[in-house]
Amino acid sequence: MIRILLADDEALMRAGVRAILAADPELDVVAEAGDGRQAVDLAISHHPDVALLDIRMPRLDGLAAAAEIRGAAPGTAVVMLTTFGEDDYIAKALDVGAAGFLLKSGDPRELIAGIRAVAEGAAYLSPRVAQRVIAQLSGGRMVRGARARDRVEALTGREREVLALVGAGLSNAEIAGRLHLVEGTVKAYVSAILTRLDVRNRVQAAIIAHEAGLVA
């Protein structure tokens, strides 16, 4: 069972997300918060597997709440809910350790897939969110692209394949299926990739994959 903390200041939005998650018997919303401060407190007291946070919330916004949760409850992975108008916040969320980015207007199946992936230790970027992240970070695109390509050159051919799929938002299980590998082997590849690229998490690796042109 994947235990979830749901935080959004709009009760109607929380109800809608809760209803979507209820369709999967392995997902359980164990706590709900209407603001960022309450979300932090509930994460500390309930130790959920995943905290699903709206970016804009009263008292403490989603970014600040994510940073506090990652520090006080490191076993809780953070997924940010966003809209297309909040590119700025998405970029900043990379620095606070968010492992997932989902659109409120996205496909409900994407919401479930994202939470499952993050709970399994993967990262998940909605494909459309990933496009916006790269666009938002595109200042000096040629320089960034050249640097990313240089870093990717240090990887083996198979590692580049795995990195491209990480950049496309696939979980370890999905990558294993795509490349006909066992999931444990994929985990080992991902760990090696993070070390070689000198990045902290899969989200940062995914950005490098996009900048290097590994993801269409």
Rank of each mutant, 00 (worst) to 15 (best):
A212G: 05
A67T: 10
G85P: 04
A130K: 00
A72S: 15
A122I: 00
L165F: 10
V186E: 02
A31D: 13
E32C: 10
R3K: 15
L63E: 12
D41L: 15
P25A: 14
D95I: 03
L60A: 15
V133F: 06
L170F: 11
G140V: 07
L42F: 12
M142H: 11
E183F: 05
T82W: 07
R56K: 14
I115C: 02
L125C: 03
N201L: 02
D35M: 07
R37T: 11
D88C: 04
M80T: 03
S126A: 13
R59Y: 09
A33N: 09
H180Y: 04
S126V: 02
T156F: 06
A23N: 12
R160M: 04
L111V: 02
V203Y: 00
R14M: 09
A130G: 10
R70K: 14
L63I: 15
V190N: 00
G167D: 09
I90D: 02
I20V: 15
I90M: 13
M142Y: 06
F101D: 01
I2F: 10
A11S: 15
M80W: 03
L181Q: 08
A67G: 09
G157D: 14
V29L: 10
A173P: 02
D54L: 12
E211M: 08
F101E: 00
A51L: 11
R18S: 13
A176R: 01
A99L: 13
V152R: 08
R18T: 06
V129W: 01
A212R: 01
Q204G: 09
V162G: 05
A33I: 07
D107A: 02
A117Y: 00
R18N: 07
G213P: 01
G114H: 01
G62C: 11
L42G: 06
I55G: 12
